[in-house]
Design a protein around this nucleic acid. Structure first.
Lengths: 146, 146
DNA sequence: GCGTCCAAGGAACATCTGTTCTATCGCTCC
DNA sequence: GGAGCGATAGAACAGATGTTCCTTGGACGC
């Protein structure tokens, strides 16, 4: 499971070091895609391939299915680590997530995310907002857990 | 799997470099056809042959089947790479996709697409649109994956 | 102190692009 | 019909750019 938060630099070449704890759980590469909230998402191979297979199984004669393919595949890249544990983020991915000098790498369970510091701060949800949505988030209620 | 996005130039001769990562997955040539969305589609040989067989097996008494045949056969070309990894796009294919100086080469899973920058921008779907279409795109829900 | 991890940068290599040169084809004109 | 011409395709090369590999140094924790 990917846990925790790390602030790492992005160098002039567009490279970022993946935290070594995260690397341990990967097989030498990650699939990085555009996220939903102005961030990037990084998936271990097996997980991304599951996603990809689902999308591939839809007929490509359907216009919506082609759009879905584009979103998943055109905005994604399989990136290998270099010997120092870095990945080179392609320019189009850096652009979609506003990444320049620094990035915040955030564990998110079975995948992790990469944020620009600005976008990260902007999206921070206060815990009070969550409290206000009690019913939707009832799964988080300790009493209901087994 | 074809992933990512590359902006490449089209030179005066009408040639475009295929990204080397894509070439690695091809056997020295691609089948390029008219796409459904103002773009071109490029298929590895095996996949094109599968498609072709499928389309041929549908009765030609069916109007949709005849249209498919035209898209797949009339507007298709098998194109070999030159020694620098470029393909020469015939004029009629460039015309159907509005290609002049630049093109965006877009991974789309087991095939890839070639777009003019204008057409590409025009069709871009934002990820927020997807969220608004939750049910249609439920295939992307991590929970549903096995 | 030693090992691990991250930051930074140089060097080697691969890729992309523009250009040149040659071969081929079709056409025109003699 | 054959020679000459232009247009097009293909092969090869060179420069610029981008990517990968490798090394170094500093910070931190054990």
């Amino acid at each position: 499971m990917f846990l925790g938060r790390y602030e790492h630099t992005i160098d002039e070449k567009g490279r970022i070091t993946i935290p070594s704890k995260f690397r341990e759980m990967l097989d030498g590469s990650v699939y990085v895609t555009q996220g939903f909230d102005g961030n990037l998402q990084a998936f271990p191979s097996e997980l991304f391939e599951l996603l990809a297979n689902q999308v591939r199984s839809i007929s490509y004669l359907d216009a919506n299915s082609r759009r879905l393919r584009r979103i998943l595949f055109a905005n994604a890249e399989q990136i290998k680590f270099d010997s120092a544990g870095r990945i080179l983020l392609p320019a189009f991915l850096r652009d979609t997530a506003n990444l320049t000098d620094n990035a915040i790498v955030v564990g998110s369970g079975e995948y992790f995310e990469i944020w620009s510091p600005e976008n990260w701060r902007a999206q921070q949800t206060s815990l009070n907002d969550i409290e206000a949505n009690e019913t939707r988030f009832s799964a988080l209620d300790l009493n209901t857990l087994q």
